[in-house]
């Protein structure tokens, strides 16, 4: 199978994730969409690794996973504390950090 097809899949996943971040209000869903975008990137890295025949892409994919894991920890904690204080997980409710 042509590895380029995986790139199309990656682009599709990224678009889905991006759209989700833009149109959904539920913080959990937005968060999952962010994860989707990260994984789309991971997929692209792995494909590039395969295409170019070196391991750089795979190494970066590992880095991304580590970052994603850390992000999940911090992000979920923020979402949980937001939900506790406001009883809502809508991102639009947290619009106070403006001038």
């Amino acid at each position: 199978m042509n590895p380029v097809n995986y790139l199309y899949l990656s682009a599709l996943l990224f678009t889905i994730g991006a759209t989700g971040v833009l149109i959904r209000r539920n913080a959990i869903v937005v968060f999952m969409c962010v994860e989707l975008m990260l994984n789309a990137c991971n997929l692209a890295f792995v494909v590039f690794s395969r295409l170019h025949g070196n391991l750089d892409g795979q190494i970066i994919a590992f880095f991304t996973m580590v970052v994603a894991a850390a992000e999940v920890v911090v992000g979920l904690a923020i979402i949980v504390s937001l939900f506790r204080s406001r009883h809502s997980a809508s991102v639009d409710d947290a619009s106070l950090m403006k001038l």
């Binding site: 833009l22 209000r25 991102v91 619009s95 106070l96 403006k98």
Partner: peptide, 16 residues
Amino acid sequence: RKLQNGYARSYAVSMF
């Protein structure tokens, strides 16, 4: 200043 409306999604739009 009006561009800074505090909605995370609109910031995301501008980023994208």
